[in-house]
Design a protein around this nucleic acid. Structure first.
Length: 530
RNA sequence: GUUCCCAUCGUCUAGAGGCCUAGGACACCAGGUUUUCAUCCUGGUAACAGGGGUUCGAAUCCCCUUGGGAAUGCCA
């Protein structure tokens, strides 16, 4: 199947989850169809594009396993093609300089007046517009400008390209035709640089035509041509504008399917004409609704907490983020959620993409990450947790062997690698006490006496195993008239400082009972109400 | 302002006129297992934005209202 999709980010800031979700959908769609997934960096905004942003983008894509086919295309490298394309369009009358002859005139692409035969244009019938009296009505190569009075009595100015007004007739207040625009004089008007003001215009009538296309996710879309303006394709400084560059590059890369955010829907109506003028059949479009943040607003560069790279720093797994993001605005249709990359590729279909925006939910991502972490082979978990922990001081003095034991004990209760920081007490005797737990569990005299006795025993047998620890605890409890297990939580606070963690017996065995003894002493020395 | 798009539990979603007393997941609540926490198990609260049609029958089709979003750049 001839299928080429692309991801075309502009490197003007950190790539955020909204962008990368688009990349993921493109990737899944392409891999499902067995096509090619291309990467194009739209770096034409020299002011704001940065090398760091490009590097970060590559890093994120690599991390998420978004492999692309062929070489990366940098849009700036195509600059000459874009300019040549613009010159060709001007030469063929498809584009024009706004102020011909003058240096620094922008070049505009002309929506063609003769477009009845285009496969994406259709007639809708004649339309009549009443004009605001005393407001100027003018026409030039750039199109029409007119004013109407809205229902609140306010005068509103409008503008649109000439193409929107087939067989235009302008009337004066008495209903006389005072101007017409049709095939007979369109060339003349297209040459008109200075706007021609038509005095006394009171109303006009024209044949409305609309641009239409079928969107793979939104369905049939259409927009009247009289609501669309000619567009700038070359700026005053000679640089190509997004619209031209984007379409030219899609032609160059022979892109067949464009999957992008639905903020581009309005551009599509105009890009269709650009493809046509360049002599190419427009690709198939799929516009995805935006991803919104916790306050319901679309993600933007300003949402600092949404940078993809930060999720790595926050201890998320790429496969979990990938899985979660693929489920934002799409679902396989059955009740599956945790799916492997392969399963996602097989199940993906663009027409199952949601038409309405989806809100990113960090809590659900955390849950999914925890599932991935829990099911991960211990060796990988241990090794990645170790690497991640490199950011904290305590790891410098931690033994790898001990770390392995701790990892095995703590894996099922880890949601993200960030949680590994809570393992600190295994490696460092300087405890941070939970004040509430301390008061509640270490104030009782009997408990304190029992703990002191326990420390004596631990000291004599400094490397008990789990079972021995358990037996010892039962004996000490009974010797002090305490019920079974009553010493577990006090011991936990005495040796870890906190009230939550893995099995107490295992925890004590992993720390080492000798070490536990000194920790208990140290804790008891703090007094009963610390 | 105008044009376009969207609307199912708090969130992500299932739903293609009868399988819907609206299903699943996260979160939340209650109970069970567990020395704690987590896991695990059981149960629960919770939604078709509102109003009109069409139809024997509407979450599903149509219209209106409301609410949200986008576009309307010599940004991309």
């Amino acid at each position: 199947m001839d299928f080429r999709a692309r991801f075309a980010p502009s490197p003007t800031g950190q790539v955020h989850i909204g962008n990368i979700r688009t990349a993921i959908f493109n990737w899944l769609y392409t891999r499902h169809c067995g096509g090619e997934f291309l990467l194009r960096i739209e770096d034409t905004d020299l002011e704001r594009s940065t090398k760091q942003a490009i590097d970060a983008l590559f890093e994120c894509m690599k991390w998420l396993g978004l492999d692309y086919d062929g070489e990366v295309m940098y849009q700036t490298s195509q600059s000459e093609h874009h300019k040549q394309a613009a010159r060709d369009l001007v030469a063929r009358g498809c584009a024009y300089e706004l102020n011909p002859g003058q240096p620094g005139s922008p070049v505009l692409f002309r929506l063609p007046y003769d477009c009845d035969s285009f496969p994406f244009v259709r007639a809708c019938g004649r339309v009549r517009t009443e004009l605001a009296v005393d407001a100027p009505f003018s026409i030039s190569r750039a199109g029409l400008t007119w004013s109407v009075v809205n229902h609140k009595g306010k005068t509103v100015e409008n503008a649109a390209g000439l193409a929107g007004f087939k067989d235009l007739r302008v009337f004066d207040g008495a209903g006389n035709v005072i101007f017409t625009l049709d095939a007979s004089n369109i060339r003349e008007i297209e040459a008109l640089v200075e706007p021609k003001v038509i005095a006394g215009a009171a109303a006009f009538e024209f044949l409305r035509r609309e641009v239409f296309f079928h969107d793979l996710v939104k369905g049939d879309l259409a927009k009247p041509l009289d609501g669309i303006k000619d567009l700038v394709i070359i700026r005053s400084d000679g640089s190509p504008v997004f619209h031209l560059a984007n379409v030219c590059d899609d032609v160059t890369q022979r892109v067949t399917h464009i999957v992008r955010g639905d903020d581009h829907v309005e551009n599509t109506y105009r890009h269709l004409f650009l493809f046509q003028a360049l002599g190419f059949t427009p690709p198939t479009y799929a516009h995805l609704p935006m991803l919104v943040n916790a306050s319901g607003k679309p993600y933007s560069k300003r949402d600092g907490d949404a940078f993809v790279g930060d999720f790595r720093e926050k201890g998320f797994l790429p496969e979990a983020l990938f899985n979660y993001l693929s489920l934002l605005g799409w679902s396989p249709g059955d009740n599956r959620e945790k799916m492997t990359r392969q399963e996602l590729v097989e199940a993906f279909s663009i027409d199952r993409a949601q038409r309405s925006p989806a809100q990113f939910d960090l809590v659900k991502l955390v849950n999914m990450n925890g599932m991935y972490l829990a099911e991960m082979p211990l060796a990988r978990f241990e090794s990645e947790a170790w690497d991640f922990a490199g950011r904290w001081e305590w790891r410098a003095s931690a033994s790898r062997e001990l770390f392995s034991k701790v990892a095995a004990l703590m894996q099922t209760r880890t949601k993200t690698y960030q949680d590994v920081n809570a393992w600190k007490y295994f490696f460092c005797g300087e405890l941070e006490y939970d004040p509430k737990g301390f008061r509640k569990l270490l104030s009782d005299e009997t408990t304190r006496t029992a703990l002191a006795a326990l420390a004596d025993i631990f000291e004599r047998k400094p490397s008990m195993n789990e079972t021995e620890v358990e037996q010892t605890l039962r004996e000490v409890e009974s010797a002090h008239g305490m019920g079974a297990c009553r010493l577990n939580q006090p011991l936990r606070v005495a040796v870890t400082g906190v009230t939550v963690g893995g099995s107490m017996y295992e925890t004590a065995a992993v720390i080492g009972t000798g070490d536990c003894a000194s920790r208990i002493r140290k804790t008891l020395a703090l007094g009963s109400a610390s």
